[in-house]
Write a protein that binds this DNA or RNA. Sequence first.
DNA 1: ACGTTCAGTTGAACATGTTCAACACGACAT
DNA 2: ATGTCGTGTTGAACATGTTCAACTGAACGT
Lengths: 227, 227
Amino acid sequence: MAMTRRTATETRELIRATALRLFAERGYDATTMRLVAQEAGVAVGNAYHHVASKDVLVQELYLEVNRTHVAVARERLQPGDLGERLRTTWHAALDVFAPFHRFGAESIGAAVRPGSPASPFSPASAPSAELARGLLADVVDGATPRVPADLRDDLVAALWLAHLGVTAAWVHDPTPDARRTRELVDAAAPLVSRLVRLARLPVAHGVAGDVLALVGRWAPHPSGGAA
Amino acid sequence: MAMTRRTATETRELIRATALRLFAERGYDATTMRLVAQEAGVAVGNAYHHVASKDVLVQELYLEVNRTHVAVARERLQPGDLGERLRTTWHAALDVFAPFHRFGAESIGAAVRPGSPASPFSPASAPSAELARGLLADVVDGATPRVPADLRDDLVAALWLAHLGVTAAWVHDPTPDARRTRELVDAAAPLVSRLVRLARLPVAHGVAGDVLALVGRWAPHPSGGAA
DNA sequence: ACGTTCAGTTGAACATGTTCAACACGACAT
DNA sequence: ATGTCGTGTTGAACATGTTCAACTGAACGT
């Protein structure tokens, strides 16, 4: 009697929300597509009609986590030393990632396969990557000591790679509360600051520029910067 | 009448060889465990009795490829500049990897999942990693300019990470003959040389040591070095 | 001879990501 | 009313990695 049909967007959102909830509750492996469909009250085939693959749902989760990270980091960031700002940013990431550690360990595998939409370099994860790069650009721009203008873009690209590195370390980190990774961040962040300072000296500026240019050619640049 | 049974090692080797052949012929996805079993003339269950999982077979392939790489690189290496030696080493890697590009793109996904034995950091791939680190240690030790002794171990660890980076770039590189990755290598190798030279200056030695120490704490060291 | 043992072997069965041909039903023209 | 159309939906079917209980046969003690 009542209309049983839904609009495509509604169903898709229903599936997405269900999947994200289940991911958080039970991890990647235990979140079966059949379970997602059942919990969402749709047929398996229907889920696949609206969502291309399980990878896409992972992707949606990454995006949501990234959004939260950016929000939390922006709230905590204070003007000042670049190293300190990086430290804040990365600790914020670890705080936001925390509930998904089990998930990360289980699913990151799918996230690095080149064809897959979950690879950080793939076009499908461009939104997530762009979010992170935008945040890092702000971190750099609002920091003292001032970063040499000619290095700025490439530095942001390099920091994004470093961010991926921190994430990778976190995934492999079995210590409680990611203590090891936090130590890494605490040691690495001030080092970045020192390296930037070093890059202003004439002896080092050339090499620094070349290193960053190389990295920049291989990692995507932030497109917009801050709003 | 004749004995149909085989020793465990024989069967295992048969399965291993068949799998490696099929991997090279048809890539990762097309090499089904059922196909491996069939081509090896055993039952599926038997294959699993001798080989824990498909990942393990991938691992065996990695090991074989690594062995070849080390051999080829050792043959080509000439005494001289560190950058040039790195260039030789990495180009050798790309040459050896070449036939498996399709394979790499298909299977690397499984190679980065932390639990999986295929992760470069996992104990299961320690032999492969050790092989590569040993080679890089030789590259460093036989190079001029002489690398400061206190940096040597950590530098090798860092170069191993760089080697993983080169591999990752190669996996994602769609250009013919991995041209893009070769450009990366051609640019990165001399930079390493310059950085090492820079690290001898008093202004930079401190930071360089700290950076390498940080990397060294996070990447495994070579255990033995050259024979 | 006969039973026991045990390494090696078998194939069916299971779980899961994914595909597909068919179905349901509201809207809309006639 | 009736037929047509298209979006949303269904569940069975498929491929594949993996598991498991049962089987085989050679070796060996008695």
